[in-house]
Design a protein around this nucleic acid. Structure first.
Lengths: 149, 149
DNA sequence: GACAAAATATTGAATTTTCAACTTTTCACA
DNA sequence: TGTGAAAAGTTGAAAATTCAATATTTTGTC
């Protein structure tokens, strides 16, 4: 029967939509917390990635924080204005620009850390450890498959 | 040991990040297909939701297509210019604006349908029916939990 | 070693999104 | 029934993002 044609899925039951929706809810919650400190999610991601002290190039960073190059350039411009990060040329390859956290950036990153941690903890608490782990596992392998093709 | 402190998760292993990343990959793939017809994902969602013929209010639509009101207003403005949709006042509540697909909009929606269907089909094929179903189930209940709190 | 092609990042214009303020209509209730 | 509060959309200015073009450095190859 036509009714159960699996390719006739209403949009709200399609994977792309469920992902968009789940992502919106979860990142809205995270955003709410970060707003208390006036930090947009993108900047929080950047601060966190740079926290380990190693410099990252614009390209690497754009890839991991899910932004395209011009957008990242402009966000970094703002963060440099706020003295959170600074740029330096990569001595190995002078086309590249490496990014580092300033002292102020490090301090902010430390202050933000518990916010994000408790966000994750709260999800696990409400959603269950097992479901959360399983969901993460499935998302991880979906990402792997999707990015390799 | 500090190393296995579960609250010290690297950002790339946090649920919020995995969702953002999976969402980006999958919607980029969908976008690629829709770009062949020059239709942005948001407009495709709107066309699809309106396809069942029932009029939707701006508010309902904004909620389901994950856009805030002013953004939706402006997207609808563009779609009205392209003669894809039209507005009408809700006779029951004249504050509301109901949206309907024009003939042109219906035709476009029909042409787009197989694109999205084959996108979903391709994911299922590559990722496996079982994993996909399980992922959808978990996302569904995460959304339910997240939106109810 | 020179020169074309590729890789990396930035810039400026154009588009899109967001925020705050506003209009119109409905609701609640005194 | 009248009046203030709430709900639904829209608007215009400001901010952010994107696209196309550009500058600089490196790589590959003859």
């Amino acid at each position: 029967m036509a009714k159960s044609d699996p390719s006739d899925l209403p949009i709200t039951e399609q994977l792309a939509y469920l992902l968009a929706r789940a992502n919106r809810e979860i990142s809205r919650q995270l955003d709410e917390r970060l707003q208390q400190e006036g930090v947009p999610v993108e900047q929080w991601r950047i601060l966190t990635i740079l926290s380990n002290g190693k410099g990252r190039s614009m390209g690497e960073l754009a890839e991991t924080v899910l932004l395209n190059h011009p957008t990242l350039t402009k966000i970094i411009d703002r963060m440099v204005s706020n003295a959170l990060v600074y740029r330096a040329h990569d001595p190995k390859d002078r086309r590249k620009v490496l990014l580092f956290l300033s002292d102020r950036g490090k301090t902010l990153a430390k202050r933000l850390k518990p916010l994000a941690q408790s966000h994750e903890a709260r999800i696990i608490q409400s959603y269950g450890y097992k479901s959360t782990s399983e969901l993460k596992r499935l998302l991880g392998s979906l990402i792997e498959r999707a990015t390799s093709t």
